[in-house]
Each structure stands twice: as C-alpha cells, then as structure tokens.
Design a protein around this nucleic acid. Structure first.
Length: 425
DNA sequence: TACTTCGGCCAC
DNA sequence: AAACGTGGCCGAAGTA
C-alpha cells in the first residue's frame, strides 16, 4: 500500500467517524432570536426597494434584478456572468452604488438575506441534543482537503451578527482550537526548499516584511516594514498570496491597480528574493505540461490533461489548468499535514483525555470540546502534537507554528494563555 | 412534484 | 471591493 493509503486515509476513517458522531453544540435560541430580529428588518428593506421597482419585484431574482438595473434604470453593465448575462453580483453593485439609491438597498437586502436563509436555519438542522452533525467527505476535494455538509466550513467570520457565537461548548466545557499559522506558506518553503524563505521562517522574521524590504530596497528591518511601509508590505503580500493560487501578472495588476509591466516587475522582484520558489513553480508547471498530471510530496495525484493543450483557441483552458497545477502541490501537502494532525490528536485524546471530543476540522485548524479542568493541560500539549508533523513525515526542514485558542464559543476564541502567566497583574 | 442549472456568496 | 486555487448551499427559474 502506498504512503497515503497506509498512513493517512485508512487510519483517518475512525477519526472521521468520531468527528461526525460528536458534532458541534448549537445555541438554538441564538439563531431563532436572530432570525426573529432580522426578518422584520428585511421586510422594511424589501418595501423600500419595491417603492422603486414595483410591488411584484423580487430582488433575490438575478433575472428581475438585471432587468431593473440595466433596462429600466439604464445603468451600465460592468461585468457579465459565465453564460454572458449582465452580472449583478456584489462587485458590480458596489461599483454602481452611487449611480442610484436603490443599489445600496439591494446590497443590504442581499447581505441580510444570506444570513437569514443560510445561517439562521441551524435550529432546523440539529439533532435532538442540539448538536449539528455535518458529514465529512475525506476525499471530497482533489487536493485531499475535506468537504463537508451543513455549512460547517463556511460560517461567516467577523460578520455583524456574530454567527460563530452560536457554536458553543456546553456548560462545564470549553472550545479549544489549534491553528497551523500560515500553513500553506510553510509548505511552500518546505517543498520548494527555498533557503531564504526557510531561514526567515526559522528565525521568526515577518516574511512579507522581508520580501518588501528586498523588493523595494527599504532601509528598515523586515519587522519594521509593517509599521513604516504598510502599503508596500501589502503589495508583496498579494504576490505571496497569488503564488499559492497560481495567479498571473495581469490579475495582480488589476488587484493593485498597476500596469502589467509594473506587476511583472513586482513578481520578478519577489522571485529574486526567493529564487527556489520560482524554480519550484516552473518545474511544477513543466511537469504538468509534459505528463498531463502531477504528484505532490506525499504522493497525491491530480490529472491536468488541459495543461497539454496547444491549440491557441483554448489557451484559456490551459491557463486555468496551470493555475490549478501551481496550487495543487501546496494545498495537497497542507491537507495531508492536517489529516496527520487529526490522527495524532485522536490517538492522544483516546489514551489520555477520554472526555475530550474532536468537533471540527477546517483545513488548517482543529477544534475540540474540552472539560474545564483539562483545558490548561490539553492546550499545553497541542503544539507538541502538531508542530513536528512535517519534519517527521517528510523531512521538512522547519517545524510548523501552531497557535492555540480557547473560549466558550467559536466566535469568542482568544489566544490561549497559560494560567501561570495570568497572575502577573 | 422532483430534478437540474444558473447566479450569487460564504469559508480556508 | 475583489480579482487567482479548493469547495457547498441558497433561491429563482427552467425542465421532466
């Protein structure tokens, strides 16, 4: 049996079974109250919109909305959908918000509607013990990431209504979370073997700050860039982020409002700082073109037949395949690391903390429901369980950084501080 | 009614 | 405000 099957996917099956059986406690009253508050508000906004558009008008219908905006009101079409219809998505509406007062109201209606229809329905979806039990598909994404049902992976973050506050620990328990910090960047450093990136991570230097300093020839220390040159750091951060997702120069230019040439120079500058990252990306893309498939460091396979397209009329398809190619080895290795973390944490709590339940796995983060009197101990153990997984499984040169949080609900998790440090004040 | 497609939007 | 990768869920509208 290959590595992934023997050491990852098979041992993971009972872990996922438990995760699904455990579920996540929901504060149903929170969501019923929120819904009761929002629905009358939404009705007022609807009436307001219908005063402009007519009583039959449904702003939730993209078709009706397009007719209103682009035919009746004559607003300019800024963007088309996949199928070529005029788009009324958030991006377009945001640009049109000053062109007519109804546009802003529609944006508000959409935002609130999403909360009501998608995120206030949990009381109808929980079991009789008020726990939400999503199904996890451990082979759901081609990269090895999980997919899951019941919206558990897409709860709004930093939203006005605090949806995540409704995901709670029962009385006498806390939620404890463990995150791999900048997991995909660590993976990029590890799989590319780029020494400058590895060194920066090993020494705890701000990666974006370091890159910005070198690209723009700044005089300050890397860690001062965040304060002294936040906009330059932001540009480099976009390059860094884009590399993980296969972004090309034109998209970066649009994102940063730069010329194509300036964007290319920015990317070139970045690659001069981290030359082996550039080499890794080139090698990855070349392999996909040559073979029509690629394999990540753990042996996970992705077919990318479109990478071999040469017909000029289909270069868009090839570009998409190459972006997927660039992202795959990073996202796939990250997924395997998180799966290894699940297995190790599961084995650990079975042996030492039978009262602790794993209740969430979310790409680079795990959460547990922990009895109050075990929080301190378990939180102190988590980094030791997770940081060395890459080193041990594949000889990564650097350990991961794991941050631990705790709180009474998902929405109120804060950095966990050992109790021994709390008496200072 | 039941299913599919589309446009839209939430997360990592 | 995002824009690039991986996904699932919602309502509207069309089809069987």
């Amino acid at each position: 049996m290959n590595y992934l099957m023997k050491n990852v996917e098979m041992p993971l099956i009972p872990v996922v079974a438990e995760l699904e059986a455990n579920g996540y406690q929901i504060d149903c009253g929170y969501f019923t109250a929120l819904k009761a508050y929002l629905e009358p508000e939404q009705a007022l906004v609807l009436a307001d919109i219908q005063a402009t558009a007519g009583a039959e008008f449904n702003p939730a219908s993209p078709k009706q909305l397009s007719k209103l905006l682009y035919e009746d009101l004559g607003l300019p079409v800024l963007k088309k959908t996949e199928k070529g219809s005029p788009s009324s998505d958030e991006e377009s509406l945001y640009s049109l918000r000053d062109a007519h007062p109804v546009v802003g109201k529609i944006l508000e209606y959409r935002k609130t509607g999403k909360i009501i229809s998608t995120y206030c329905s949990f009381p109808n979806e929980v079991d009789s013990d008020s726990r939400l039990r999503p199904e996890y598909n451990q082979m759901g994404a081609i990269t090895g990431r999980f997919t899951a049902t019941k919206k558990i992976q897409t709860l709004p973050k930093n939203d006005r209504y605090g949806i995540r506050n409704g995901f709670i620990a029962p009385l006498g328990f806390k939620i404890v979370g463990a995150d791999f910090e900048q997991q995909e960047l660590y993976i990029l450093a590890a799989v590319s073997g780029d020494q400058a990136m590895l060194d920066a991570i090993a020494n705890g230097i701000d990666l974006h700050g370091l890159a910005a300093k070198k690209v723009f020839g700044l005089a300050c220390n890397p860690d001062e860039v965040k304060i002294l040159h936040p906009e330059k750091r932001g540009q480099v951060k976009s390059v860094q982020f884009g590399i993980l997702y296969g972004m090309e120069a034109q998209s970066l230019a649009n994102k940063l409002s730069l010329s194509l040439k300036a964007a290319e120079e920015l990317i070139d500058g970045y690659f001069k700082v981290f030359p082996d990252v550039k080499l890794f990306i080139e090698k990855t893309r070349d392999l996909a073109v040559k073979n029509g498939c690629l394999v990540d460091v753990f042996g996970r396979l992705k077919l990318v037949p479109d990478a071999q397209i040469t017909s000029k009329s289909k270069l868009g398809l090839q570009s998409k395949a190459l972006r997927e190619t660039q992202n795959f080895p990073i996202q796939a290795a990250a997924a395997t690391i998180t799966k290894l973390a699940m297995i190790r944490c599961h084995n650990h709590i079975r042996e030492f903390h039978p009262q602790i339940k794993m209740i969430l796995s979310l790409h680079d983060e795990l959460q547990f429901q922990v009895p109050d009197d075990e929080v301190e101990h378990f939180a102190s153990e988590l980094p030791g369980l997770m940081t060395n997984l890459g080193v041990e499984s594949f000889g990564f040169k650097i350990p991961f950084k794991v941050s631990v949080t705790s709180g009474q609900s998902w929405g109120s998790l804060v950095a966990h501080r050992p109790a021994s440090l709390e008496c200072a004040r």
